[in-house]
């Protein structure tokens, strides 16, 4: 299990990184935290001709939390995001989900943006980007563009980012007023990729009735999706909402696959259970934020 030979560059600026990527052509790949890419290289499941290591590019390691949302730079490690209190206040899902990503030593090196660029439907942060209706900023030699999550995720381990391009940050919009979130997952071993995970956002109206309910699931489907569960509980007073009904609805809206660790039916079951459980928690938070 040793990587095949490759060429290596560690540019000191974003422009240089884009230059090298352009010069090296199709065989070039960005190396960020390496926590997904290096295992693939060692197993020789991937053999890019050139790795462009962005770890020395300055200015990509910031977490910027504003009223609008949280902008996470490409070199922000999962661990840094997990412990960023300002980010957690603006968008609580970030820390809640990140806590479920792997184990600490992986989180110390792996990047949140890298996990989005990797587009693994079993990754937590792809779903969170979707659920928060987030986007990424993509830098290419032609300039920067913002790509919304719907346009980003094309298939499992596949994004619309091609050619010489670096995802420089991901933007997670702030949690809306009168809203609460929760995140939960079932994994075979603690720290594993989830067998199934659920992130939810509950939004109340001023009368503390359920206004909107959205959920996004992990390891369910080929690309992250957002499921609107509002109809199951719309207009119900928050303390009388039938979260189980929302769970039931969720089960009918997803189309999971089976694999070694879970049958499709079991995943569907978990979608229902996790939805019900997280909605209760998220609603409580929404209520708090509505009262306050």
């Amino acid at each position: 299990m040793k990587p095949a030979p490759f060429r290596y560059a560690d540019p000191g600026s974003l422009d240089e990184a884009l230059d090298v990527l352009a010069a090296e052509g199709d065989g070039a790949k960005v190396l960020a935290g390496g926590q997904s890419l290096i295992p693939l290289l060692s197993m020789r499941l991937a053999a890019p001709a050139t790795l462009v290591d962005i770890n020395r590019v300055p200015g990509l390691d910031g977490v910027e939390a504003t009223g609008d949302g949280v902008r996470v730079g490409a070199l922000v490690r999962h661990a840094a995001l997990l412990h960023d209190d300002a980010a957690a206040r603006v968008q609580p899902l970030l820390a809640r989900a990140t806590a479920n990503v792997a184990h600490p030593a992986i989180r110390n090196r792996g990047t949140t943006v890298g996990s989005i660029a990797h587009a693994d439907p079993s990754g937590e942060m792809t779903s969170v980007l979707a659920l928060t209706d987030g986007s990424v900023t993509v830098a290419t030699p032609a300039g920067r563009s913002t790509v919304g999550w719907r346009d980003l995720f094309v298939g499992p381990l596949e994004t619309s980012v091609h050619g010489p391009a670096v995802v420089v940050d991901a933007f997670f919009p702030a949690l809306a007023p009168r809203s609460g979130t929760a995140f939960a997952e079932v994994a075979r071993r603690k720290g594993d990729y989830a067998v199934c995970g659920a992130g939810v956002v509950v939004t109340l109206d001023a009368d503390r009735r359920v206004e909107a309910v959205r959920a996004s699931y992990i390891s369910v489907g080929l690309v992250p999706e957002v499921v609107d569960l509002t109809e199951a509980v719309h207009g119900r007073p928050v303390d009388a909402a039938d979260w189980a009904a929302a769970g039931e609805l969720a089960r009918t809206l997803v189309d999971p696959d089976g694999d070694l660790h879970a049958s499709a039916d079991y995943r569907r079951l978990l979608v229902g259970v996790l939805t019900e459980r997280t909605l209760g928690t998220a609603a409580a938070e929404a209520l708090e934020r509505t009262a306050a």
Partner: peptide
Amino acid sequence: CTVLVDGTPVRSCLVFAVQ
């Protein structure tokens, strides 16, 4: 394979030496 890089635990099998 865990080692500390600048004081932080990381998997040394998931880092290239040049990094």
